[in-house]
């Protein structure tokens, strides 16, 4: 069964002792945990004034590592976001861009975000909203930010009805609320957890809307495939969650 990871990162995170890997090392590490392919985004973009340099460094780093597919970070809160997006599209195939609303103070229903959504639709690029990078209770004391709340995410989703969006880093209850009645929305499993995670999640969210995500290196990679190892869900649902759903979403 081929596994396609919707959420991995390369780069530095200043607030934890995380493994530092280059692109080949990340690919090997993922492979050792049974993960064949992954979307990878630049962690350095979270705190940079604009994400361009981190995106460019990532494109250079993954050259020659075919199992990693760049999902650049775009910051619509700064004026040059069209240049950021164009630069990424010039450097390689891009099927998904990632927006970090709490780290970049992006107003999800603001004019810049509306323009970004329209531009991505025009270019056939999907958008992922990174709802959280880490548990907000564990942010560094010098960092004051909160993930967007469910009502704000609801307003955003309802502002773009029918627009395919990946909500990344949501909690179990957020996943259930935000996918209800919105078949175009996908959620990843990085922060979704409960006793028998997959059975619980699939009781609340249609299987076609759920995608596998390890959130390497911020979360322990082994934990993501562990959710599947003894999961009592059908083989077809397992296949869909582990890779087919993400592939279909990116290609739609």
């Amino acid at each position: 069964m081929k596994v396609f990871d919707a959420l991995t990162w390369l780069g530095h995170w200043p607030f934890a002792f995380l493994a530092q890997r280059n692109a080949a090392g990340l690919a090997r590490h993922l492979r050792a945990h049974g993960i064949d392919r992954a979307l990878v985004s630049p962690l350095d973009a979270a705190f940079a004034p604009e994400p361009g340099p981190a995106n460019r460094a990532l494109f250079r780093a993954v050259r020659g590592v075919p199992s990693l597919e760049v999902a650049p970070v775009i910051n619509p809160a700064v004026a040059d976001w069209r240049d950021q997006l164009q630069d990424c599209l010039d450097r390689g195939p891009v099927r998904l861009v990632r927006v970090l609303p709490s780290y970049h103070r992006v107003v999800l229903t603001g004019p810049a975000m509306r323009s970004l959504m329209a531009e991505c639709r025009r270019r056939g690029v999907k958008v992922a909203i990174q709802v959280r990078l880490i548990d907000e209770r564990h942010e560094h004391h010098a960092v004051s930010l909160r993930p967007p709340k469910v009502p704000a995410l609801t307003r955003f989703l309802d502002a773009f009805p029918g627009e395919p969006v990946l909500l990344s880093g949501v909690l179990r209850t957020e996943a259930a609320t935000l996918t209800a009645g919105r078949p175009q929305v996908r959620v990843d499993l990085a922060f979704v957890e409960w006793l028998e995670t997959l059975r619980t999640a699939l009781a609340a969210v249609p299987a076609r809307q759920v995608v596998f995500a390890s959130h390497t290196p911020i979360l322990e990679t082994a934990a993501a495939p562990a959710k599947f190892a003894r999961a009592r869900i059908s083989p077809s649902a397992k296949r869909a969650l582990l890779g087919a759903n993400l592939e279909r979403f990116l290609n739609a």
């Binding site: 957890e193 006793l195 322990e220 082994a222 934990a223 562990a226 003894r230």
Partner: peptide, 17 residues
């Protein structure tokens, strides 16, 4: 901390470290 957490994930924190 189950059922708030998944046994498989909790064990993987150890075996994956």
């Amino acid at each position: 901390d189950a059922p708030i957490r998944d046994f498989a994930v909790a064990i993987a924190r150890i075996t994956g470290a």
